[in-house]
Design a protein around this nucleic acid. Structure first.
Length: 258
DNA sequence: ATGGTAGGGCACCTA
């Protein structure tokens, strides 16, 4: 049976529990992967989602920063994680669906402002993290999905202005090359671009723009990657959610697979 | 070239 997975950088799950509920009620993905939950695991508002039917949770969190969670209508076993770059950050959680599909939920470091590893340790951390993604997802034991806020827009049509963003962290050549290398190393398929192969496509719009919708200066930072054994039935960005009440700066990205 | 807006938690870090 196909299942629908959604990835959404929520920028505080406690503040935005109401719009997470709205997404679950209106879109009803089988699996919802959240990033930047910004709370420790014990403060994750599980009950508010469990009462809607999403009662299975794989969660990791840090006080005030990072945090990833997989909310599911289907059982998740076993739940594991990797400590990328050995920093103790909650940036990865993984679990298996009953059909054996392995779900990886990732929050790649944003990387700071200056795209220079000598002067900006956050940028060095980001590049190291993506290198580790290439090294650790090299083989798969059955079907797998990698989703998350990868904080890199790899293609020219994943940003509102390719030339202008070449020196902006998230679209520099060193980042896009490393992301492409990680994708290739894992044999991953960019499921969203399989379904929408042409044209501008974004999943994030800055809070700083006066009118994000009219200006439309977006970037595609959120991704769904699949192993080739998974059939891709559909994929889309729910752009409207960027305009919901008290929104995240990211829109949810969906794929129907299997 | 600069500054613009958010969240967490209560000074200033992060995005």
């Amino acid at each position: 049976m196909p299942f629908t997975i959604c990835t959404w950088n929520i920028n505080s799950v406690r503040l935005r529990a109401p719009i997470v509920r709205r997404l679950l009620e209106e879109e009803a993905p089988d699996v919802l992967c959240l990033q930047e939950t910004k709370c420790p695991a014990e403060k994750f508002p599980l009950e508010t989602f469990a009462e809607l039917g999403w009662e299975h949770l794989a969660v990791r969190g840090d006080k005030g920063y990072n945090g990833v969670a997989i909310l599911s209508r289907l059982p998740l076993t076993p739940v594991e994680h990797r400590d990328f770059c050995l920093k103790g950050d909650s940036r990865h959680v993984t679990a298996k669906l009953p059909d054996g599909t392995q779900i990886h939920n990732l929050y790649v470091p944003a990387g700071g402002d200056e795209p220079n590893v000598e002067t900006n340790p956050k940028f060095a951390h980001k590049l190291d993290f993506v290198d580790e993604m290439a090294a650790c997802f090299r083989s798969h034991d059955g079907p797998a999905v990698l989703v998350g806020d990868l904080n890199i827009a790899p293609r020219e049509d994943d940003v509102w202005n390719h030339k202008q963003l070449l020196k902006i962290v998230s679209h520099t050549p060193v980042e896009t090359e490393k992301l492409n290398a990680a994708q290739a190393a894992g044999g991953w398929v960019d499921a969203v671009r399989e379904v929408i192969p042409e044209g501008l496509l974004y999943s994030w719009w800055s809070y700083r723009a006066k009118d994000w919708d009219a200006a439309d200066k977006g970037r595609r930072l959120d991704h769904v990657w699949t192993t080739p054994d998974l059939k891709i039935h559909g994929a889309r960005v729910l752009r409207a959610a960027r305009g919901w009440e008290q929104p995240s700066d990211h829109a949810p990205v969906f794929a129907t697979l299997g």
